[in-house]
Amino acid sequence: MLALFVAAALSTTPCEPPEGHEVLWTPENRFVVVGEIHGTREAPAAFAELVCAAAEQGPVTVALELPVSMQPQLDAFLTAPDEPTAAALLQPTIFGDASWADGRTSIAMVDMMQSVRRLRVEGRDVTIRAFQPSNPRPAGFDQNYYELDMASELVEAAASRPESRILVLVGNIHASKTHFERIDLMPAAAHLPRKETVSLNVAQQGGQSWSCQAEECRVYDSIARYDAEARGVIMGPVSEGAWDGVLAVGPVTASPPMAGEPVQAPEAISAGSSS
């Protein structure tokens, strides 16, 4: 009986990572960046499985596009005794604020975070780190400074746990490794060491997402630009090297915000949308 108890206590959740994930875990890849269209069920779920696979090999820091001011609540979330308590700890944050409804506070995001918490309960060396700047930019400091601040937070996350691989889930523009000439933007991932960074764009294969566009947050159709039948991690330069490959999850479905549906998208969220 004691042996059975010990075996149960040591059991771990099996990982089901996307096909082709193995190429991501080379020793030089300190940063694995996944760029998504916010507000889908599938992208956070696939990201959670990548975290699970990475955690089988060593320490992992999960970096999320959430305000750095949330870090105390994220730390408490990870150490909560059970899932309902963990979810309740998010309620006073942007997850409980219906005005933050651009997809980063979706039910799918909470599910992904709960999966990371379960890995920690099972004994994996995982943590969650917020890296979105909390303070508004001063006048005259454009989006490029915001991207630089995000990259700085990611570098700090790596430096604070040098033995850890950094898995980043962020809007796909932030995940680009090249300069966007049309809008004169150097994204966050472009500031990270190129030889230590691999970036994937979640392939647009149709379906729907929950996002904020113009003045309204709601379900929007997702454009199909990639083979809808493709699945897994598919390496090869995308958009002239903006991303190193794609994460193909198939046609997506929308995941609404944890706090419910707002009537209107606040200006600050519309302006900060990254997808």
Rank of each mutant, 00 (worst) to 15 (best):
E42D: 02
H174T: 15
P133K: 11
R118T: 15
V23L: 05
G241R: 10
M109S: 06
R129G: 04
R182E: 15
D142M: 00
P92I: 14
L24N: 06
E42Y: 08
D97V: 03
H179C: 07
A43P: 05
E22A: 13
S222C: 14
V68S: 02
W243M: 00
L154P: 08
R225S: 15
A88Q: 12
E153D: 13
A139P: 11
V62A: 06
K195Q: 15
P92D: 11
P92N: 09
A265V: 12
Q73F: 10
S11D: 09
V263W: 04
S11H: 08
S222M: 15
P138R: 04
A224Q: 12
E196V: 01
A48C: 09
A53D: 04
S164K: 00
E28A: 13
E22H: 13
P44N: 00
T178K: 12
V51H: 00
S275L: 14
G140I: 01
Q73S: 13
E19M: 08
V60C: 01
P14R: 02
E240W: 09
G250S: 01
W243G: 02
Q204E: 07
P193F: 02
H179P: 03
E163I: 06
R225D: 13
N135C: 12
E181T: 15
R231Q: 11
L2A: 03
S211E: 15
R231K: 06
D149P: 10
G232H: 07
F31E: 01
V6P: 02
G39Q: 10
R118W: 09
